[in-house]
Amino acid sequence: MKKSGVDRPSSISQDDNVTEKTAAQPALVPNAAIEIPWREKFRRLWRAVWRHRWLYIIVLPSVLFFVIFKYWPLFNAQIAFKDFKPVLGVVGSPWVGLKHLEAFFNSYYFSRLIGNTLFYSIAGLILGMPTAIILAIALYETRFNMIRSIVQTGAYIPHFLSWVIMFGVLLTMLSPSEGLINEIIKATEGKSISFLTSPKYFRWVAIFSNIWKETGWSTILYYAALMGIETALFEAASVDGASRLQRIWHISLPGILPVIMIVTLLRLGHILDAGFNEIFVLYSVPVYSVADIIDTWVYRAGILEFKYSLATAVGMFKGVIGLVLLVVSNQLAKRWARTSLY
């Protein structure tokens, strides 16, 4: 600014600067966006749209899907603040403000539902993630390709089995009358245990069956990250006399740390999704106190007891908290791992 003269008004000197810059630049990147009038811009946009017209047409059904099954429900969600009566419809039902949310916060099941939901999410994360990391490292370290591919194949399968099938598999292991584990207990002079219907054991059965089902599948990401580590690093460490465990601790684990962080943040963003399908299939009345999570309760209250508004309010509460958690964990992922979760 100073070189254009001291006595000039600053606005003019700024203008000068701009012209100087554009003049100095070679005309390779013409600063066209500023020059052309909006009418021309609109024509160009329209031409681009017209050129892609078939793309807009083929995407229309998919957009319609989102409008009907994702945005229409958002409109219906207003019944969280109304006393919904099916006869009156969504729009016609009377507003009641925060009545249903207050009823939820003040009820005895509030702390129970939040507690169970967080318990299943956090315990699943704390116990499941190290198991998957250890399995991925073992798969990476083994020198027997046969064992590696057989274990990989076998460990992925349970991911594709539904929770109803899992329930059947669990019964053959845990059922008091013919379950394998109970037969072992009985053979060692113990009394058979009803794992799935006793509040004492249900939580751990649910958590460990989830680990059994998903550990193999979740190794895919860690294993890929391990494969991405420069092998030269391992060789250099081995020349320097590092033991196997030292190499895992100082090279492998730091190498997959970004993936560990991304997965953790993603799981934290979904911490209120504690596995509806699993609980819904496995639980029964005797274990409601330790099994009931937000989603299972919403189903029973809304669909079985027709408390549409209350159940919607609880679902909305979960949705809002989930939104905040997802946005926050995405910001953290961008800052720490330089990646976006969605």
Partner: peptide, 29 residues
């Protein structure tokens, strides 16, 4: 990438991933 409106479409879809109305409002639909 050159499609006009691509970002609007992406946000239109991501929004439904970030926030869903839940079981009961969808059931009513």
């Amino acid at each position: 990438r050159t499609l006009p409106g691509r970002n609007i479409l992406i946000n239109f879809i991501l929004l439904t991933y970030l926030f869903s109305a839940g079981m009961i409002p969808t059931f009513l639909v």
